[in-house]
Design a protein around this nucleic acid. Sequence first.
DNA 1: CCCTGATTCGC
DNA 2: GCGAATCAGG
Length: 206
Amino acid sequence: MSWTDERVELLKKMWGEGQSASQIAKELGGVTRNAVIGKVHRLGLSNRTTGAPVAAAGTAPKPSPEATPETEEAAQPLRPRKPETRQAPAEPATPEDMTEPEPTPRPSNVTPLRKAIVPAGQPLPPQPSANEISPEALAKVQEVEKTAKRISLMELTERTCKWPIGDPATEDFYFCGLPVQQGKPYCEAHVGVAFQPMSSRRDRRR
DNA sequence: CCCTGATTCGC
DNA sequence: GCGAATCAGG
C-alpha cells in the first residue's frame, strides 16, 4: 500500500488524537507501525508534546509548512531526544462500560484522603457487599488470586487484568495481571464478578 | 514479555 | 520516499 492522500490524512488525524503508531497502523492496514512512525517523521509531525492536551479531534491545526528558508538551514531546531511525554499511564481499574451489567466490584475500597484507613493486617473481605454474585464466580476469583501475576500499576497493559487485589495502603497490593478477556479490562474470572448479567431489578418499564 | 516512539540506512 | 531492523525506553 502507498501513502495516498486519504491515508495520510487519517494518519495525521489519528496521530493528532494521540493514537499510538501501532494503532494507526492497525487502522490503516497494510502497514506496520514502523511505516507509520517513519511517515510521521517524514511529515515532520513527530513531537506530540505540545503541552496542550492532544484531544483536539477534528480540528486540524493546518500547520502551514513554513516557506523554506532559502538561506540555508539556519534555524535547524535541534531536538533533544528526551522530551518524550509518555502517554497517560494505564488507567486504574475502572469498571465502567458495557451496556446493561453494572460493575459491582469494589474489591478494595480505596479510601481517598485520611479517613479511617483500614488497619493493614486485616485481610479485607473479598466483597464488601456480598450479594447475588454467583458463588461460583466468587470461588473462581479467590482461586485466581492465588495464581495472579501480581503486577504493579506500571505494568498494567491493555491485556492484563486490572483487578486490584489487596489493600492499596499496603505493600501487599497489586493487580491481578492475568491475561484479560478480549475487550474486557479483566481476566475471565474477574469479569465474572465485575459484570453481572443483570439479575435483580428486571422490572424495567419500556 | 508486553508495549512505545526514534533512528538508521539499503532499497 | 519508504519501512524493516534496530535502538532506547517504560
